[in-house]
Design a protein around this nucleic acid. Sequence first.
DNA 1: GTGAAAGCGCTAACAG
DNA 2: CTGTTAGCGCTTTCAC
Lengths: 352, 352
Amino acid sequence: MVEQRNGDQRPPTIYDVARAAGVAVSTVSRAFSRPGRVNAETAARIRKIASDMGYRTNPLARALLTGRTSVIALAIADITNPYYFGIIRGAQAAAIDAGYTMLLANAQESDRLEREALDRSIGMVDGIVLTSTRMSDSAIRKMARLRPLIVLNRVVVGLPCVVTDHRHGMREAVAHLTELGHTSMTYVAGPEAAWADSVRWQALREIAAERGLKVHRIGPHPPTVAGGVTAVEQFRTQPAGAVIAYNDMVALGFLQGLAALGAKVPADVSVIGFDNIFGTELVTPGLTTVASPLQTLGATAVRQLVATIGGAPPQTGDPVMLPTRLVIRGSTGPFRRRRTAAAFRSGSTAGG
Amino acid sequence: MVEQRNGDQRPPTIYDVARAAGVAVSTVSRAFSRPGRVNAETAARIRKIASDMGYRTNPLARALLTGRTSVIALAIADITNPYYFGIIRGAQAAAIDAGYTMLLANAQESDRLEREALDRSIGMVDGIVLTSTRMSDSAIRKMARLRPLIVLNRVVVGLPCVVTDHRHGMREAVAHLTELGHTSMTYVAGPEAAWADSVRWQALREIAAERGLKVHRIGPHPPTVAGGVTAVEQFRTQPAGAVIAYNDMVALGFLQGLAALGAKVPADVSVIGFDNIFGTELVTPGLTTVASPLQTLGATAVRQLVATIGGAPPQTGDPVMLPTRLVIRGSTGPFRRRRTAAAFRSGSTAGG
DNA sequence: GTGAAAGCGCTAACAG
DNA sequence: CTGTTAGCGCTTTCAC
């Protein structure tokens, strides 16, 4: 009703620019989005005026009309976990490349919180990347019906997924230990709900069967440094010369626990982790680990999502599988039966 | 022109719900936003129908009208840096508490990228938290005119700021070293552009003057592990018994560099970092550090921003200053002049 | 307690 | 090449 636009504080609209330039709003709009279809001079003049006025197109209005916000959501199981840093970074870079902005939805390790966060943001985003989601398959499928969606670190049949080739990684890890003379190894399990844990453990069992190795599983343990520390208690009752941990956090904790016990790494026990997160190269000895392609994981997921948003058919077939790389540091060494046995002799806390 | 709404795939709108319920759209709208002003039965019926249809209000349309998106942007200098994990986490939690969603803008350590990311998202957010921004004061002020804004880890006069009390933290660090008998210390500087670096160094100089201590500054060095490693080269030409590093990343790298040289920590050199990031407790020896209240920093900034968005007057007076806490681990110990001298005797690479 | 109607700022037809 | 116009889906007066 009130005709006085641009009253005072509120930002200038396209109408204000049009009026100032003496052209129609559509011309202003075109001057920005399709410069080719406007007289070059006019376009330049409009742009000058617009920038002088401090005009910026209102992305909300545009999105309401076009249905595109150029924002994608990245759901993360736990922002605190260094594992996700690489993923976030890769995703962010790919998003920027494609002209998208990233909305971060932290699940805080909770199914409910993840759902709520996504529920809030789903209306504002063009697509979703679910990372190590805690949601059920059916909940994921429901979301996928609302928006293009891609699943990271989990396989959901019928949806586009990007995963790491844990099986191959485990094969490399075992080969490395075998070369060092180890024939018996303990797997320190992570959370049972974790997709990666079941894949890794199953792969280890199969490989052990193939090669005639002895494997033993302890856990489950929380996928944290603390979880690794406590795992040592369980381990010492039935020690082995080599330990493969669910992930680096657990491995790092395990290393700490061993040190507290006075056990030497790798002389008494060899330890391997998974992922190659920040910190694994800083501890002493450095942690040997099966590196996940973290940044590539994030970037691949985003790129595929952006393609889907752009109209490409979603890759609902086999999941995209990214390769691992074994990073050998100081925490693995030759098997020495006597040292191992001595280190964990009941009651002993003495080391080298 | 086409009357066929709800044609096929597109989500139901408020009109669809209104039609299905046989009421006016305004009634549907009220049923959600002001349940009190609608007949209770009717409201319940409408909500039932809406949920059955899978209706969800379009946040874009709402935002276009109300001018509120319930999204805030968090600009981060470098997502890769573990320093920011705690801040992100605290910010995220506070945002959720207040009913906001967080948009992450990664600056990738670049003034330009930061500006671009913010430019893209500024239209979609109700407010902005700038963390360790690389932008100039004037650029920051310009942004602040567009949206409520809060500056983290830097003081910009006239804008609301949240910072850590580095001065006090440095005082604690020096007190700790002094108690251990150190009277001479080296400061390993971070990037010159970093606000925290200048504050920390200046504080150290003042404190040293007060107490009659000898301080020496080397650098600047990149605020990374690699930066710390290379700093050792410079340090060994003029060693001291105690080192205060710009931050934990540098300190961690410094520790590595010392180990490579065969120097013992803390017997030959004591090392202190700043921030207490992930990893400082995992290295051997653990890093003594001046802990920053990372989560509190993020949460405080967001809470203040949300208050401002809600109409509270922005706190443009003195910056909010949050306290540090000295975390003593194994990297600091008593001063031993001879050990230090011996460890860095020119050409020597042998340790204790 | 409910309905009708006017836009929020923008873009995409459709005419000229 | 440019102008006119009809909405995108929602909330908010203003009537009844």
